[in-house]
Design a protein around this nucleic acid. Structure first.
Lengths: 334, 334
DNA sequence: AGAAAGATATGAAACGTTTCACGAAACATA
DNA sequence: TATGTTTCGTGAAACGTTTCATATCTTTCT
């Protein structure tokens, strides 16, 4: 038995008794006489015809495909961003190509090259190195949550600076007199760095002594944080010299909660804590709920995709910052 | 200024002073005379030529593309599976198209149809409905972690039954005399159901009274579980009538830990707990560590991709079950 | 040395679309 | 009725590859 060949437009045309071009026009929704249209549609249904994306892509060099380059899906934040991007991509009738680079520059570049061979309609990148000069001019690129040296590459992120500032404002509003900052930062230029700057700006404005733990990635961050907190306690009075924590991420906020608990301090009575990311929004784990500055992940994804797809009409703006919001999660008084 | 056109094989051929076919052979690694090869490679480098995947796909109807259909990336288990599939896909020189269906059957079918139009080389599906009859015959399909009515569709999963059995064996080995099962199950036919069957089989074999909480998805599972546990305690003696828990997932194991803690029982002294999934392997959150039956996610992903890509040589086996392992995580004595 | 066999380069055809110049038909105008 | 205008279907060309029959050049054997 011969292998069943998928029907082509030519088959449809023959079946419907019309010309090839007519079939094409029906498929692409270009005006066609009613009787013709009906005949073609009947033939399509009868033959169960489906367009061949590759033939179309070759002809139009529009592949209806978006590419997402992301280190991994291990961090819930990454996973959720990828999810939101996919949802948007689908909504716009595109397919999403997922690339997990593990943050390895060579892989990142390799993915770019693959994407370019596949004539992808746009690249959304959350990379460790600045890959903007690897991307062909005719493929729109948006860098998410990163700021590289080259400031001309369009990027998008939450307003991390405002978020850092807001966290301190909130802690003060909730009665804290000495909020501090804790966090680890990696050596790649992530937008998350701006949270610390927001903290500093708030300290300046409200005339606070800026106390913080802000170091490069550490193998045992729990221990580092533990020691830091211990160093700020008066053992005789069992008193801490701070009463509020702004943690760089919800993960770190959780670690702080645990450590304070281990040290027999009460949250939020003794210390109020605000994290960052809004992880509870997308990680359905109770243990993970803290008061937090929420990143608007769905809105960010929406913006990314819309901007990319609109890139040929309107050049991509250099920087797009979306507002963050505070949300109560039990580690503050409200 | 004219828009810069990407160079084609024809350009390379002209630049190198050879025929079109020769360029093709160089690119595809077919034997070509040394001098020709050198000339072509030089031209490729000079023009910065890249193959056009769409032209190639049209000609060969091999798209070097795999499609993953998964409900979402919200559950760490899903996210990690997607990640491992992507890694394997990349290793085999393919691209991955990610489809998040939210478990909506219409979307699942729509994704299948898109995949088929795009002539994907294979589909890996973690769906809620049985989509096997929607997939064209010539596209290999593997269903992950599901068992539908139609038993002829190739599927792959961890050996959940053996895992359930193993969990009880371990609890007994660690000195429990009355292990129980807790878990919620959804109404779609997931392989995870088999864990409960494994539990039951173990009860039969070891002559245990099978105590369990096993209900359909619940809006407030915490409360249900809390009430269940309370109903098994003697309030006067503050004693529970069980001393071991096998939880259907690590998430539920964590909930149990928390509830027992709230009720002032000690884990693992009073109650030992074993979860399922091995979530700690891929979710880097300390709160989330329990003793667990580990699903071999990387191995599962590897198998999926290898089998799919080998499907034309060797027809896909109906059922592939990969072994699970026990791993200590603090909620048991070892 | 001549013929046969073996390599390997060549260029045209084909994959399944979209697009466009062309022509036919229908309609409006005078 | 004759002419101009609009509408819409037609079919060939083109997109950038791969593949295959053909042609050319070596090598080997008698």
């Amino acid at each position: 038995m011969a292998k069943h060949q998928a029907p082509t437009m030519k088959d449809v045309a023959r079946e419907a008794g019309v010309a090839l071009g007519t079939v094409s026009r029906v498929i692409n929704g270009i005006t066609v006489g009613d009787e013709y249209k009906k005949k073609v549609e009947a033939a399509i249904k009868k033959l169960n015809y489906q367009v061949n994306t590759y033939a179309r892509g070759l002809k139009t060099s529009q592949t209806k495909t978006l590419t997402l380059i992301i280190p991994s899906l291990a961090l819930p934040f990454y996973a959720n961003f990828a999810y939101e991007i996919e949802q948007q991509t689908y909504q716009h009738g595109r397919k999403l190509i997922l690339c997990c680079s593990n943050g390895i520059p060579e892989k990142e570049i390799d993915y770019i090259s693959l994407a370019s061979q596949s004539k992808t309609d746009g690249i959304i990148a959350l990379t460790y190195s600045d890959i903007s000069n690897q991307v062909p001019e005719d493929i729109p690129l948006i860098v998410f949550d990163r700021h590289f040296e080259n400031r001309s590459v369009p990027r998008i992120a939450s307003d991390n600076f405002a978020g850092g500032f807001l966290a301190i404002e909130k802690l003060l509003e909730f009665g804290c007199t000495h909020p501090i900052f804790i966090g680890y930062h990696s050596d790649f230029p992530g937008e998350a760095d701006k949270r610390f700057e927001g903290f500093q700006a708030a300290c300046k404005k409200f005339e606070l002594k800026p106390t913080f733990l802000y170091e490069s990635d550490d193998n045992d961050s729990y221990e580092t944080l533990y020691n830091f907190i211990v160093s700020h306690q008066d053992k005789d009075t069992h008193t801490l010299d701070f009463d509020g924590i702004f943690a760089n991420t919800d993960l770190e906020a959780c670690a702080a909660v645990r450590i304070l608990d281990d040290l027999n301090y009460s949250v939020p009575a003794d210390v109020q804590i605000i994290g960052f990311d809004g992880t509870k929004k997308f990680l359905p784990i109770d243990e993970y709920i803290v008061s937090t500055i929420v990143q608007p992940l769905p809105a960010l994804a929406k913006k990314c995709v819309e901007m990319i797809l609109n890139a040929e009409n309107e050049p991509l703006p250099t920087l797009t910052l979306l507002p963050v919001t505070y949300e109560y999660g039990g580690t503050t008084i409200k």
